[in-house]
């Protein structure tokens, strides 16, 4: 228990057959359709959120 998880960033990512099929479908759809949404602003998601004080919904690990 509690052995450290080794990230192994250079390990090749293997997809399941189901994932591969879904991605192939997404790729063909993406090539046909363009995203057309009214963007208000761009959110910087690379900024780390500081752990908050009050989150009732977080009461499970």
């Amino acid at each position: 228990m509690n052995a450290k998880v080794t990230p192994e960033p250079e390990m090749r990512i293997t997809l399941t057959d189901e994932q591969r099929q879904a991605l192939v479908k997404f790729i063909s759809n993406t090539n046909r359709a363009s995203l057309n949404v009214e963007v208000e602003f761009e959110a910087h998601v690379d900024q780390g959120a500081i752990a908050p004080v009050a989150v009732l919904v977080g009461n499970a690990y």
Binding site: R12, I13, L15, V39, E42, V45
Partner: peptide, 21 residues
């Protein structure tokens, strides 16, 4: 990912820093 060549390291430069809202 479909080609089977992706690693987490090779995907890292593509990671989005901004999302359209």
């Amino acid at each position: 990912l479909v080609a089977g060549t992706a690693t987490r390291q090779s995907l890292e430069p593509y990671r989005l820093r901004r999302l359209p809202v």
